[in-house]
């Protein structure tokens, strides 16, 4: 940094201190609280709380949820980014806005909409019930809610990354005789692999941690439709704090793992920056506001 722009040390230190203070009371202290509360009665008690049948079922259901939603999201993200980043067509910016739509809809409203469509009182819900398929207060509804919420996650990482790498490599591959799958697999994906990985990780974290939308459609049936976050809520409201925080700690560890993975990925991408058209990560700028 040029010497001239160095602000006076006093101001610099004051601003850094201010930033750290904000982060401390907003992020670090609550983070520490999760683990402290979980371990209040010792590690053994916390682990016992995690191995309760209801807790185990919640963990299993959460993993199942992610196992269903993440692959679907991945396929959608690949299709959407291939269409948007590698082709020009009429209505593209509308499509991009719609892909981003779930971000601006409250999770509770998303859940409500699913209840309105598939609830027992609705036409479709009644019809499906007649066929023995219950959507709301059951797994299908929870999957739909999670899908709705996580829908943009992979696409919004992949679209900017694919736009940044341009189309010429794909065109060159096409001219050399490669078919669509060969282009995708051999040329495009290696170029955006870090963005893809990051999108999948974020999608996974959100699929496992989604609360509002899933809460509305799940019905909170213990041992049946409770994911970890829902189980956390129930335990907390029963003043079973150790068990609640023990489960919360599991999700917190997942979040911290996701963040460290992101740091590693960012470091990798920065290392590739030597190349002028290297892929990049978006940091959640709305898709329609990305530079084209």
């Amino acid at each position: 940094m040029p010497l001239m722009l160095q602000d006076p040390p006093l101001i610099r230190r004051a601003l850094i201190a201010g930033a750290l203070l904000v982060l401390g009371i907003l992020l670090v202290v609550p983070l520490a609280a999760v683990f402290t509360e979980a371990l209040r009665l010792g590690l053994g008690t916390a682990l016992t709380a995690l191995t309760e049948p209801d807790a185990l079922h919640a963990i299993l259901l959460t993993v199942l949820m992610a196992a269903i939603c993440v692959p679907l999201n991945l396929v959608f993200g690949l299709a959407a980014s291939w269409a948007v980043a590698k082709h020009d067509f009429w209505g593209k910016s509308l499509l991009v806005t719609l892909i981003d739509l779930p971000f601006s809809v409250s999770p509770v409203i998303a859940g409500l909409m699913l209840v309105m469509v598939f609830g027992l009182h609705s036409f479709l819900g009644g019809l499906l019930e007649g066929w023995g398929l219950q959507v709301i207060f059951a797994l299908p509804g929870m999957v739909l809610a999670t899908l709705f919420i996580t829908f943009p996650f992979v696409a919004r990482e992949l679209i900017p990354a694919m736009q940044a790498t341009g189309r010429e490599e794909e065109q060159a591959a096409y001219l050399l005789g490669a078919n669509g799958w060969q282009i995708l697999w051999r040329v495009t994906l290696p170029n955006v692999r870090w963005a893809l990985l990051y999108g999948v990780l974020l999608c996974n974290a959100r699929a496992m941690g989604e609360f509002g939308a899933v809460s509305v459609v799940s019905g909170h049936i213990r041992g049946e439709t409770n994911t970890i976050p829902l189980q956390v809520e129930i335990l907390y409201n029963e003043y079973n704090f150790v068990a609640a925080f023990a489960l919360a700690a599991v999700l917190t560890l997942l979040a911290l793992l996701t963040l460290s993975a992101k740091s590693v990925i960012e470091w990798q991408v920065r290392r590739q920056r030597a190349h002028p058209e290297a892929e990049r990560l978006t940091n959640r700028v709305p898709l329609h506001q990305l530079p084209r």
Binding site: E168, A172, A173, Y174, L175, G177, R186, H275
Partner: peptide
Amino acid sequence: LSARDRRVGMVFQHYALFRHQ
């Protein structure tokens, strides 16, 4: 014929080399 089937050799302005290969 599609670009794939024309058997045309093309050198792009910025070469479009596959950077991971």
